[in-house]
Simulated assay, not measured.
Amino acid sequence: MRRMLAIATVSLFALCGIATHALNVQAADTSRARLILDRFTNANHWRQHVMVVAHRTGWKENGVTILPENSRAAIRHSIELGAEMVELDVRKSADGRLVVMHDSWLDRTTTCRGEVDTFTLAELRKCHLVVEGSGAVSDEIVPTLSEMFAVAKDQILVNIDNKLGPEILPDVAAEARAIGVAHQIVMKENLWSAKRIDEARAVMNTVGDDVIFMPILADDAIDDAAFMNRATEAFSAPAAELINWHKDNAPLTDKGGPLFSAKAHAAAINGNWHMWANTYPIVNRPPGMLAGGRGDELAVRENRPEESYGFWIDRGVTILQTDEPKAAIHWLETNGYRIPYDLTN
């Protein structure tokens, strides 16, 4: 009896300690980004909610460029829309500073001409971002990665599309830590073999475990759920970016391919990770090239979102990366695929 009482007393104190810790964590982690991170890292608990990633930070609406891509204004816009994550592209200046730019050259998206890595940061600061299509010149100059992190801080997660080699990832993480956003960063690499998994794990060991990693898996190299399990388990990944390649003149995918099969969905549930589909278009490539033809063009321009967003959700997708975050979020909310965030605490 005494032993049971002692155990009960110890357990009570332990529970009190846990409760106190939980309260402290909750008090410290009430930012929007932390609430998003909870949904991102607990896939099975949030499968009724579909998250939205704004490609190139969220620059388009109804197929028209409305903001400079990879801009601070675009991040703010995506936050206002309710997106959970922005994707941005990292490059280096001639003097080794990390900057955000999709292309290797400046011509398409800025007022300058030439290759990014031939300009020092001071020279890049003279290049203004433009709105592609209209050519409108914005007040923004080529941003540093740290400046973009500062805008995202406490508000939205950041998906790093590394346009350089894996050797820059520790530098990306260091800049994130300096701003206080390391927990908001998601790094990724394309994985297709056990060797590739080992190489990515070696890189991430140099990055640190405070930054999230997820694999990119494409169905031209991967066709079985067992490898999907290995790739996600190796990094305790909360998500996997899945590619269903669409060829020229091919019909719309009818099943989604092996990475969106029932076995793949079961693997995601077993591993507690999100299935992520990319619906954004690629210039001069077939519509929906990354999504079996069922991309943003079908959803927005042809006004058939059920056959795009709905199709992927039916196959277990809980994260959509899109050039049309406004349209996607509106459709998802209208059809009951979004659960509001409690930002009142």
Rank of each mutant, 00 (worst) to 15 (best):
R2D: 09
M4I: 01
M4T: 09
A6Q: 15
V10A: 15
L12Q: 05
A14D: 02
L15A: 09
C16S: 14
H21W: 14
Q26D: 12
A27Q: 15
L35W: 04
I36G: 13
I36Q: 06
T41P: 05
T41V: 12
H45C: 04
H45V: 03
H55T: 01
T57I: 06
K60N: 14
E61S: 02
N62E: 13
V64K: 14
T65I: 01
L67R: 15
E69H: 01
S71W: 02
A73W: 04
A74R: 09
I75M: 07
I79T: 11
G82V: 10
V90A: 09
R91K: 14
D95W: 06
V99E: 11
M101E: 01
S104M: 01
S104F: 05
W105P: 03
R113D: 14
T118N: 13
T118A: 02
H128L: 03
V130H: 01
V137C: 02
D139E: 15
E140Y: 11
P143A: 00
P143L: 05
S146C: 07
E147K: 08
E147C: 04
E147A: 09
F149K: 08
A152G: 03
A152M: 01
Q155S: 13
I156Q: 13
L157N: 02
L157P: 09
I160D: 14
L164Q: 06
I168H: 07
D171E: 15
V172E: 05
A173T: 04
R177W: 09
I179K: 10
G180S: 10
H183G: 07
I185N: 01
M187E: 14
S193N: 00
A200W: 06
V203K: 01
D210G: 05
I212L: 08
M214W: 11
I216H: 02
A226L: 07
A237P: 07
P238L: 12
E241M: 11
L242Q: 02
H246F: 08
H246L: 11
N249R: 02
P251L: 08
G257N: 01
F260A: 02
S261M: 14
S261T: 03
I269N: 04
W273R: 00
H274I: 12
A277Y: 02
V283A: 14
N284T: 04
R285F: 10
M289H: 06
L290C: 09
A291C: 15
D296I: 10
E297T: 09
V300H: 08
R301D: 15
E306D: 15
W312K: 02
V317H: 03
D323T: 05
A327S: 13
A327F: 15
L332G: 08
E333C: 00
N345T: 10
